[in-house]
């Protein structure tokens, strides 16, 4: 179902450059706050900040298709790869903080966490699933995988669900933020389900 994409345009490359800079702002801001000493528990602060931005970028990535269908210029699909890769960038940072500062490279402690703590199990699974998506995000892999590329990259639905579950299960009491992410995700995935059911129904009618 992959349609031929329109050729790159100069305006688009400027927008992409702008998006790249914007997407790095949370990273720079986090570092500046930690260096300034304003974060009293800098490790928790970095973990939460990167975690929030993984979910935000996952939601933005998943918003591209619905926005196109709702009338946004279809060229926005050209921003989708960068949005997804930034989700992976923040996920890598998020995991690195856990690996180094929480577990200090202790493979036994990490294995124990992954097996025993459901919120770590789903979070770790999401990261593992994101990795092949990041690797196969290039034009070369898109060509090589053909139709299978689209099938493989549908894994992002599971990644997003696991990501939101990870957040939901770790919160001590105040669920408002996880609920917000879950609601956004439900809309983004619900629209897809709705469209796909409708399409099937219409196909049968004709």
């Amino acid at each position: 179902m992959e349609r031929r994409l329109p050729p790159p345009q100069p305006a688009l490359s400027r927008i992409k450059a702008l998006l790249f800079v914007l997407a790095l702002i949370p990273f720079v801001r986090t570092i500046l706050i930690v260096l300034s000493g304003d974060a009293i528990d800098p490790v928790a602060f970095m973990t939460h900040a990167t975690g929030d931005w993984i979910l935000i970028f996952l939601m933005l990535t998943l918003a591209v298709t619905p926005l196109r269908r709702l009338g946004f210029p279809s060229a926005i699909v050209r921003l989708r790869r960068m949005l997804g890769l930034f989700a992976f960038f923040y996920a890598t940072l998020h995991f690195s903080i856990y690996l180094v500062l929480d577990k200090f490279f202790d493979p036994v402690a990490i294995a124990h966490d992954v097996v025993k703590r459901p919120f770590i199990t789903v979070g770790f699974t999401a990261l593992v699933m994101m990795t092949p998506l990041a690797i196969t995000s290039t034009d070369g892999w898109m060509r090589r995988l053909k139709r299978n590329w689209g099938r493989l990259h549908r894994a992002i639905y599971a990644v997003a669900i696991f990501g939101v579950l990870h957040y939901w299960w770790l919160v001590k009491r105040d669920l408002r933020q996880p609920i917000l992410f879950a609601a956004i995700l439900a809309v983004l995935l619900g629209l897809r389900l709705f469209w796909s059911f409708r399409q099937r129904y219409q196909v049968r009618q004709t």
Binding site: D41, V43, A44, H112, D113, R117, P118, F119, W169, L170
Partner: peptide, 11 residues
Amino acid sequence: PRWSQANERRI
């Protein structure tokens, strides 16, 4: 039930 109490981060 959801996290280890074996260690702690001293602020």
